[in-house]
Each structure stands twice: as structure tokens, then as C-alpha cells.
Write a protein that binds this DNA or RNA. Sequence first.
RNA 1: GCCGAUGUGGCGAAAUGGCAGACGCAACGGACUUAAAAUCCGUUGGGCUUAACGGCCCGUGCCGGUUCGAGUCCGGCCAUCGGCACCA
Length: 897
Amino acid sequence: MNERRKPYPFDRIEPKWQAIWDETRAFHAPNPGDENFDPAKPKYYVLDMFPYPSGAGLHVGHPEGYTATDIIARYKRLRGFNVLHPMGWDAFGLPAEQYAIKTGQHPAVTTRENIAKFKAQLKRIGFSYDWEREVNTTDTGYYKWTQWIFLQLYHSWFNPETKKAEHISSYRGADPDAVRLAYVAEVPVNWCQELGTVLANEEVIDGKSEVGGFPVVRRPMRQWMLRITALADRLLDELEGLDWPDSIKALQRNWIGRSEGAEIRFPVVGAARPDDRTPRHDSPAFPEIRVFTTRPDTLYGATYMVLAPENPLVDRITPEDRRESVSQYRTAIATKSDLERTDLAKEKTGAFTGAFAINPANDERIPIWIADYVLMGYGTGAIMGVPAHDERDLEFARKFELGVVPVVQAPGKTPEESIGYTDVGVAINSPLLNGLSRPEATARIIDWLEQNGHGRRDTRYKLRDWLFSRQRYWGEPFPVIWRDGKHEALPESELPLEPPALEDFKPTGTGEPPLAKAKDWIRYSDNATRETNTMPQWAGSCWYYLRFCDPQNDQRFVGEEPERYWMGGGSIAETGNRKPESKDNTENAFRNPHSEIRNRPGGVDLYIGGVEHAVLHLLYARFWHKVLFDLGYVSKPEPFQRLVNQGMILGEDGRKMSKRWGNVIDPLDVIEIYGADAFRCYEMFMGPLEQMKPWSMKGVEGVSRFLARVWRLIMEENQAGEWILSGQVQEVDSGKAQLKVLHATIKKVTGDIETLSFNTAISQMMILVNALIPQGGTPAISVSTLRTLLLLLNPFAPHLTSELWEILAGKFPGPGLDITAERWPEHDEGLLLEDEIEIILQVNGKLRDRITVALDATNAQLEALALASKKVQNAVGGQTIRKVVVVPRKLVNVVAN
RNA sequence: GCCGAUGUGGCGAAAUGGCAGACGCAACGGACUUAAAAUCCGUUGGGCUUAACGGCCCGUGCCGGUUCGAGUCCGGCCAUCGGCACCA
């Protein structure tokens, strides 16, 4: 391939400016109290989801979000904000460990190499990160505090009275270990043999591991859990005030899965206990079945009950003559895979236990069945079957010929026809509830249940407690020891607890973690040993945004003042009621971002990342943050005020980029040919940030041509082929038309950046540049117009604009050499108005003519002009004019028929 | 099944309820050049009509509604993508 001529010398200017930014610490954000800290500036915290530094390096998907945040960061700096824009590494994780298993190279070495590669790539794109704040979750100085936060969770409980996490010392019960937010439980977990570790529910997809796609089986093991369910209500309710995409909020709501209803107690008759197989009806040990239902109003329609096959109650209630068939069914279910069991298409199966329960509402005796459509893991592992108003129950009842009693009558239907209706209608066949609507009936029956001791109001969640331990080497060790079979927290003074040096990182295969191989390390004292599990990768990412506020602090996970400043709602300037910009135009809300900022509840001001973290990282981090908030360590209850998901970038063939399709684009290859500025601008020009969109090399070329036109507006080649300042750049006044498009561009670009509509911002700058290109005659371009253009373009193409700014500043006196020290321009609304404007004339809503009128033409004048138009008259023809709609400065619509 | 998003030229897309297709790509024509590349200028939703200027009709997934006026708002469908899924 021929060495193609560069459209402009980005290969020289980009490294030049990157070096200057490094040397001058151009993007270092000072903390309160630091040298150069300006208390007059409001803060702006703009954050990327920090990457896992894989061996593959960046692909074009990473820099999409990073470019967006970088534009915002640079823009906010020009608007006078103190901008926190950091980057770091989520570096614990499986690939480095698996590489270690294969090669024996320590994961720390692999990680270090990968980070160096990632960092070089990010720098090459010209991101304005404050690299002095870089964090790495695998540094001892970092995970010391991850372990410290774990200890806070360990030492805390959720007080249902105050609805807050509190120190365990405020717990008055007998067994604090039963309520700690970090606790140990023997639970059925997702065990992945291939990975040699257990996984969180969130990490298992269709019975396979999210990483690697290996089979996952349920198996009871002793594990560390975090009591995230205690915060379920808050995690749900406090989503409301967040400026997040609806889809992400919906995903989290769905994942938390709050259902409101009642727990109802059904006494069992004809029950048999293993130790006494005689049916007993009046024993004090009389078993009862508790069910959870969201439809207590349909209680009278409960014609049978179903227990999950695994429900331990089954043994207690099944009479002798049914034991064999019940046990057969249970065995059949146990050998089924999760996939088979949850296959919706399959027919309902089940077995009658031989026992009966009493429906407390009408004292009816109803049969108790077991069936695998009832899950042990949700509610109480038992349901009341209301076939008339639940599809699944209806299917089951029809198959096994159980009674179906309609208890809700749908509007306009007979009771019989109302079977299968689940939503609307009034209660029937329900003595206590007849005639009531669903909400009324629900309230009435719950009151009745509570008054008569048959049940209570209840809320259940799909959310499970967070399985927090892993059997891996490359993760944070738990700061916990075991003595006499009981766990104890390590004292804070012993943090960080570093993992042992190991030769062999392989999983043991038995479920025992690799750390168990380090016999010396395990031994804590004569009678105490260390916990050998490690934390999952999510641990480090749960609080990294806090560490960025104060990354070097070795006394605290984050200093109080930096946390208040960066994560608090108001900056020093805001609380001081001071605005950094004097001009204010209330007509245009977006022109005054400060009013918007002041009203924010605080936290990270803008967080951009992939949608894949909707229910994992984003839920976990919110959970930790709320606990830290309750304990008084952070200033606001939510960490991320505004969240945006960038859309995936597809290959040129429209398919997901993957090695398999050979359609992966390497950013550095693109930068090699077109430069970092073109790469950045193209990523933003492709389309709306949130949208999925295919890559196009031709598209990059188009954007590159645009940047080259900007270059040639200001530079020209001399005889020797060197770029020199163009003679057409002069200190002249811009013409009226140019000023108009310039100010329209200031307005549009400013508004578009605020709404992250970068694609249209770039379009508008293209329009401006097209308008500035001299068309014949004696060309002269105003220096001040060019400077404004460079400022507007600077966040998008920082290298090019820095270079051109410097060249202009060297030739024309005025501003300094450094564009990043400048202020963002403001548009003058007056320049956008013309003396004459075009009015469109419609007949019945269809465009028929246009006229040019004075700006201040009255409605009456407009109407007269419209009716005088030949084209309007033709369109009206013989019809009668019914009405004339005049929209000032816009249009006239003549209605005729 | 439930929840969420999306549907506009050949392609990426744009349009506070007011000129549909800005901007860019591709394509075609032209200028410059010995030639090419680069650059610059022009045309470019579909159809009908006119010698030409121009004129007319259709057009934002489909069907209805609201409105002087709908890509945009409302109701009902269809399709694609993403998430959840026997969650009681």
C-alpha cells in the first residue's frame, strides 16, 4: 500500500500536545486545600466505567464512552468547572489468573503489562484524564480499603426500625452473627467445576457461567454472603430520583422484583409426621403451610395447594400410603436439569401428597400437591392454587381435575366466563368480599387475616442476598480468621491482608480455594486460621469512584473533605451562592448549566458505561454506597446521579465485533491513518451515543476531511511543501451572514454538548466550516471567528485545535498560547435575528408558497400577504376559506374546503 | 408471556406539533492535472409532467384518532433488538 499523504500533520501535532499536557499536568484537578485549588469553581465529576485491562487491548467500543466523557470534561473545564475526570483499572479477574495457571506467570505481572498497554492506548487518543489519580484495584494501597469496607459491612446490621445500616453494637438480639450485613451461610450455590469457583446468581446465564459458558450446578456450600436484600426497598425506591435511562431503572426494578401481598397460613389436616404416622388434627405440633400470594383477594378461589418438591414440609405431611409415589416424583424432579425444569413449553407435572389443608376463609378442605412449577427459592416454597385467576394454576387444575371456582367476575362476563381473567373485576363467591374491587378486596381480606391470626401483609423480593466469596487466587483475601469454628474480623491495623505467594494457582477442584494450599499463610495463631476464600471482582469496582476523590490517602478510604467536595451535592462555590460566569440568559435553560448543577442531589455528575452493568456493578455499588452513607462515611445516599449507556459499536458488516467474524477494528490502526482527533470525532459523529451503530471506515474519512478543511482554513502549503499560516486569515470583521452562522453554531454546539448530542454538534460545526470557506472574490477570514470555531471544536479535536490556536496566538496578539486556559464562547441572540424572515404559506397544511417579510410584520399583514399569494389562491381554487391560522415568524395556514 | 428500546433515502442519520431527509458517506457529472491521488464545484427520496423555468402527486413499519397542521401526541397492531421469565 502506498504511503498515503496525511490530510494534515496530525502525526506531528498529536504527540506534541500529548507530551505538553503530560508535562504541564494540564488536567490535574486539585482537591480542596491543594495548591492551585480555586474555591470559586464549582465541581464536576465525570466518570467512565473503568476497564478490566485484558491482554487484547482496547477495541473501538471502549473509547466511545471515553470520548463522550472527555468532551464533557474538556467542555466543563472551559466553562470554569473544577473537573474530576479519572481513570483506573479493575484488575482482579479471571483471565489473568487463568493465564497464570497456564504459564506460571504471576497474575500481578500480567496485569502490570496489560495496564501499561491500555494506558498507552488511552493516552494516544488524547483523553484528558488526571493520571495522578489513577487507581488499580489490585494495589495493596487500594484493596486495603476494599477489605476495610468489608469489615464495615461485617460490623454492621440493618436496623428495621430506623431502616438504616448501623454498627452491630446497636443490635440487641442474642446472636449478632444472624444479622450482620456480611455473614456466612451454608447455602445452595452456583458451583462451576470448570472455573473451580462459585458464582453469584447474576453471573449465571441459562445454567452456564457468564465467563466462559461452562456448566453451573447447584450445590450447598459454606459461603460469605452480603445482606443486600435488607436494602431492597431503598435500592428500589431511591431509583426514582436518579437521572438514569428508564430501561436501566426498569432492569434494576425487575431484578429486585418487589411483590406486595400477604402471607397466609393454611392448617393441615390428615397430616403425618415421620415420628408419628397417625393423622392428628389437634396436636400442638399441628403443621401448617404458609404461602405468599400477591392476590389474597382470591383466597376463596383457592381449591388446592402446591408445595415445591424440595419443601421439607412434604415429609411431615405425606401419609404412609402416598410416600412412595411422592418420593418417586421428587426423585424424578431432582435428576432434571435446571433447563428442563424451567422449560415453559412442557406440561405441568405433580403428585398428590394425600394430605389436605383448610382454606381459612371458608373452611373448605383442599388437597395438597407437590409440583415442580413451584420453586423452593421464592416466597415460602408453597402456593395456594387459584385456578380461576392464575394461568399456571388453571393449567395444573385442568390436568389433574381439581376444582375451579371463579371468585372475581370480569366486567360484562358471567362468573363462568370470568375464569382465566386475572386483572379486573369485582369479587364474587367470597362472602367477606363480594362486590369489592381488587384493591378494596385485598385490603379487606388482609385486615381479616391479621385480625384472625390467619396471616399478615407481606412483601417479597426476587433479589437474593449477594454471594460474595470465590474460590480463586487473584482476588482480595477476606480480613477474617476462624477460631473454634467461629469467624472473627481481623483488626484494621492488620490491613492490608496480602494474599500468599503461590507457585500453583490452579483451583483444587474440590471447592477448596487455592489459598488453602498456602499452609503457612493460613495459620494465624495456634488456634486460629485465615479465611481462604477471596472476594469477587465486583468488590473493587463497588467503590473506586470514591477512591478517585482522594487516591493517595493512606489514613482513610477517602478523606472527608475531598469526599464532601466531589461527591457532595454542592461545591464550595455553590454553597457560597457564587456563579463562575457572570452572564446569564434565562431564556435558554441550557445556557445556564449551573442552575442545573446546583439542584443536583450530588454524587458523580455524569457516569457513562455499557449497559452490561445494569444489574451487577450498578446495583452492588449502590448497595455499598448506601451502607457507607448510613454509617456516615459519605455525604449522599446515591453514588451516580446521571447515568448514560453508550450503544455498542458493530463491525462494518453490521455484526457484533468479534475475532470470529474478523470484523474487529483496532483504534490504533485507525489513528495511524487518520489521527486521534478524527477517530474521536468519528466515534461521536456516527450517531446518537446511546444507539447501537455499525463502524464505517469511509465515515472516518469523511470526518477526517472535515478536520483537514479546518486545518486549511488557517494553514496553507508554501512552495517547499511546508505548512504556514494562510494569508487569508486576517484581523477583519466577519460579514453579517458569517456572524449569524457562527452564533447559531455556538448556540447549537453548547446545547448539544449539554444533552450529549455530539453527532449534531459536529454537523453544525461542519456547516460553519462550509460557510467560512472563501467562495471566490478576495478571501479573508476573521481571526476572531476562527478562534471561536477552535474553542467549540476543542473538546472534540483537542490536538488540532490546540495547535491552530497556538499558531494564531503567535501571529495575532490577544489571547494566550494555551487554548485550554480559555473560556467557552457565548452566543449573542441578537445576531441570530435578521430584518427579514421567510414565512411559509400553507393551504390545508400543505406547503404552497413562501414569502419574505419584515421581522416585525403583524399577523394581519401576514394573513393579507398569504391571501394575496397567487399560489395560495390557486390552491384554494373555488373552495371557501374557513379559517386562517397565523404563527408569527413561522407560517400562515389557510383552511379551505 | 412480562418489561424496555427501536422502526425515516442506497448507507450512518437530522427535524421545540409547523418547509421531511440537515450533516456525512456512497453514487453520478464537472473543474484542476500529461495522468492519478488530493482538493474544489454541482446533482442526488420516488413518480408524473414541461422544450425550458416550472408545476403536480406520493412518501417517515401498518390501521385508526386528536389537530388548521402529525415523523413527532393518543389508541390498536406488526416487525426487529435487549432484559426477565412457572417469581405465586
